[in-house]
Design a protein around this nucleic acid. Structure first.
Lengths: 246, 246
DNA sequence: CGGCTTATTCCTCATGGCAGAAAGAGTTTA
DNA sequence: TAAACTCTTTCTGCCATGAGGAATAAGCCG
């Protein structure tokens, strides 16, 4: 816990304080919460209702409120994306070490992909860390491979109402991606950056994530492509095997 | 997650949503958080500052925000009171089964004690479940034994400015409690309820909690007192041994 | 049935969201 | 290598809207 911010949000403070109390001290009634926070009972009730809504609390048959699943030991390690990150981090590092280029892990998020882990190249000029960011799937190498693995109906659902995307052209590109097994993003999202991506699929063949190598365009060399694709294939295979084993 | 409450607190909703996103998805920048929540960047920053303040987030050297210790797997099991509850629950049950009266665990909280676990007697007329509640320590059996184990300076610090408490009289009572090793609350906090309490001390002799048996005054019998005190002693000894072993 | 507790509703004013500015950090360029 | 540039984080002030509290209704238990 740090110093109180200069411009604290008292409603948020109450809620977080209450959540932490539930975790530390266990079951509590509405009136107990009101006393502990120094607020009206109706306010405490509203705060608890929000905690319940967002899974930070739940109410038992004795009417007391307890920590919800977000605050339980299992939650942090059970979230699918957190699991995937944990599982992929070693492979990301291996991939990066093998290629000396930055390796990214991304997951699908509607028509976008979200970067959830990066192993950065040790070279001075390198693809940077994009963790936390979202980018349009059809502009990103890994995103393209995810789209390529989607059933046509799902692809339509994502893009049929989006005028900015030429759907027939995208389909043709994705057919090529499927054929090759990887996709390239040549400076579509950032000038001077080129990436090679490959989807990670579950046992049923559905894309759950993608790995990509991102490097300065100046270092992109068609002759080295097979090597990068090979390293990506290796990493993807290992992740897929680990996913199947769960 | 439940249905959104009819009268949601949107600021609290933003904060909790953001905390859950950090746990599920991992590191995030301020601008990422703003995008995900659909709020201004400055608002996202204030929310993150509150999350950091309450240990739901922390910021790394890369400026990204990550889950704080409250959201990590270890937090839920590491909180001292949560540990104590977990450790004491079996003894509470044993104590209750042995005496057929309700057994309570309470911890000191300033001049009060807070009830953190109860094993209720199976009898129809019984001491009830007080989990979550706080009561003045000097009116509660377990609280008296905690006060009795405090150094005189600490006792003074708690009560010297409190006119409602006759400190010399309390001192005399606590001296008696120390001599006996247990304390009785005869209807001070609730008409018709009598309780016998005993402190749990750490290796250094400082009181960390107390166990008590609470029963209807109608069942309180001075001839049975040694039996109750014996059972309490047993339970306290086991808890103290377990505490020492950590 | 009574008393306590939880849950809901309405109103008002204090605070949370936003815009803008300042500060910080990393990259690019000369 | 230093300056310029750009993006990002952090800070600040203002005002309208949403959070807190009072009152009421509903629920629960002895």
């Amino acid at each position: 816990m740090r110093n109180k911010p200069p411009y604290a949000l008292s409603s948020v403070d109450h809620a977080l304080h209450l959540a932490a109390l539930l975790q530390q001290e266990g079951p509590m009634r509405v009136t107990d919460a009101a006393e502990r926070l120094g607020v009206a009972v109706s306010t405490a009730h509203r705060l608890l209702a929000m905690l319940v809504y967002r899974d930070f609390a739940e109410q038992g048959p004795d009417r007391r409120y307890r920590p919800g699943k977000v605050l339980r030991p299992a939650a942090a390690s059970a979230a699918p994306v957190a699991l995937l990150r944990e599982l992929c981090l070693p492979e990301l590092r291996t991939l990066m070490e093998r290629t000396q280029e930055s390796a990214n892990l991304m997951v699908p998020a509607g028509a976008e992909v979200r970067f959830i882990a990066t192993a950065e190249s040790p070279q001075v000029l390198r693809g940077g860390d994009r963790v936390g960011r979202s980018l349009p799937a059809h502009c990103v190498s890994g995103g393209k491979t995810i789209l390529a693995a989607l059933p046509p109906t799902e692809l339509d659902a994502l893009y049929s109402e989006d005028d900015s995307v030429d759907l027939p052209r995208l389909r043709r590109e994705l057919a090529l991606v499927r054929e090759r097994g990887f996709a390239i993003n040549d400076q579509l999202t950032e000038t001077g950056l080129t990436a090679v991506g490959m989807a990670i699929k579950d046992a049923g063949g559905s894309p759950v994530a993608a790995l990509s190598l991102a490097l300065p365009t100046a270092r992109f060399d068609r002759e080295r492509l097979p090597g990068w694709v090979g390293a990506l294939s290796s990493a993807v295979a290992k992740v897929e095997a680990a996913l199947s084993a769960r």
